[in-house]
Structures are given as C-alpha cells and as structure tokens.
Nucleic acid binder design. Structure first.
Length: 251
DNA sequence: ATGGCAGGTCCGACCTGA
C-alpha cells in the first residue's frame, strides 16, 4: 500500500504537478492540503481521468483538504471537520475509510505568531488531533510543527518563532503517544527530511527548509513500513508548490 | 535592517503563508 501526502498550495495552480505525481508514483492514497478551491471547483473529472476519486473538505480561497484514492478503493465513512476544533468552517480536516484503513488529511493552522490568538487556536487544533488519533490508521498532512531541531535548517534563526516552540512540539509528541508513528523518522532516525522551503531567496536550492509534513501510521502498522521519502523533484520544475510530497510504502 | 515568492481576490494593491 502506497501512501502520499502533499500540501499543494492551490490545487488549481498545481493540478498538472498532482497528475505528474499520480502518474509517477501511483499511490493508493494521496492526502492533499491547501487545495484552496470552492467545493464546486474541485477537479473531480481530472482526477477521474487519471484513475482516482476523492473526497474533499473545502473552504474557498483558504485551506481545504482532500483524500484521493485509486478508483478501485472505495472512500467510505467520510468525516469533514475535526471534533473539538475551534473553527470547523476552515476546512482543515477530512477523514475516510480506505481499504480498511482510517485515513485523515490534516492542515494544522499556521499560528502566525507566538503571542497571537491564532497560536492558541493552533495548539487547540493539535490537542483535538490527539483526541482523534487513537481511531486512526493514517494521519497525514501539513502539521506546521517541526518535531525537533534536526527538522529546522537554522534553529537559532527560528528562536521565538512558531513551528519550533516546546508548546507545539509537546503536542505533536502527544499525537504520537496516542498511538501513531512518524514514518519518516522511524525509518530515517538521523536524516534531514525537509518538506517545505520558502519560495524566496533560493531557499530550496540552498537546502534551507523545514520538516513540517508528516505521514503518521498506527503503531500496529509500523512493522509494515518499507520505505518513506520526500520527492524533491516535484519541488523543482514549472510552478512548484512550496512543499514537496512525502511518500511511504506499507507491506 | 528590510524584503525577498507565490497563491488568493475586491483587477490592484493587500492578505496569507511558515
């Protein structure tokens, strides 16, 4: 079973690259974040032509998430929105049962600044994810938290910023303690695995990134993990997202 | 020290992202 997750920063702008990913990797399940489209504008037809179908939770110009799957894998028990989240209309969570697995696609709020109201809402979203985690087999998405300093290109430069604080990191650990395993870190304990790079100043080519996208799998599935990696090639080329997709394979 | 890129939308600056 091939799993993938990608923050596409507009599904409309990124549709050619998403189709490229499907053709190149043929994942069974692809979780998407920042689709940034109205529900009516979701490109179901283009995905169908590529052999996929999808369920989405959309909020127009901001956020938006989806779970896509190979056409022969039904998407059942769809849940839009995360129980306990502060702003359910922001479309940051969609979950479905695929091939017996309960899969969620998550886009955690950015948090803006540590002293902002948005930061408290980010922590609340992470707490709500912890509560939902025990019922999940796969929690994939842009969690907007670096798990450790290894996941930050310059920890000193990020001191005092969001994405690196003990408050955020302890909540991410809480999600893992609820029964999930960080697939990339499980297979690559010491490797840098950035998934996001600022568009500006050539950060991507200077390898100045963050690891903020995750594939978390239920602890019972961890022994089935065969590979997990980031496809940097999809961060290159025409009109890339500022995130690269993260992929994993379960035996 | 500042802004730098790319997406969206109120089509022209402004907001958001991380």
């Amino acid at each position: 079973m091939k799993l993938a997750t990608w923050n596409v920063n507009s599904l409309k702008a990124r549709l050619p690259r998403v189709l490229e990913l499907l053709d190149k990797h043929g994942p069974d399940v692809l979780c998407l974040q920042e689709t940034k489209c109205e529900r009516e504008a979701f490109p179901h037809e283009a995905l169908a032509a590529a052999g996929y179908h999808a369920v989405e939770h959309s909020a127009g110009r901001w956020a938006g998430v989806a779970v896509a799957a190979r056409r022969d894998l039904p998407l059942e028990d769809v849940t839009r929105g995360l129980s306990g989240e502060v702003a359910p209309d922001e479309a940051r969570w969609v979950a479905a049962r695929v091939d017996g697995l309960h899969v969620a696609s998550a886009y955690v709020p950015n948090g803006r600044a540590v002293d902002s109201a948005e930061f408290g809402r980010k922590l609340a979203f992470l707490d709500a994810m912890r509560a939902a985690a025990p019922a999940l087999d796969v929690l994939a998405g842009d969690l907007n938290v670096t798990r450790a300093d290894l996941d930050v290109y310059d920890p000193l430069a990020f001191a005092g910023s969001t994405h690196v604080t003990p408050e955020e990191r302890s909540r991410l650990e809480g999600v893992l303690q609820a029964g999930l395993v960080d697939a990339y870190r499980e297979l690559h304990p010491d490797e840098v695995g950035f998934t996001w790079w600022d568009y500006r100043q050539g950060h991507f080519h200077r390898r100045m990134g963050l690891r903020i996208d995750y594939l978390l799998v239920g602890a019972a599935h961890a022994p089935r993990l065969r590979s997990c990696g980031i496809d940097r090639d999809l961060r290159k080329g025409p009109k890339p997202s500022d995130h690269a997709p993260l992929l994993a394979e379960l035996a």
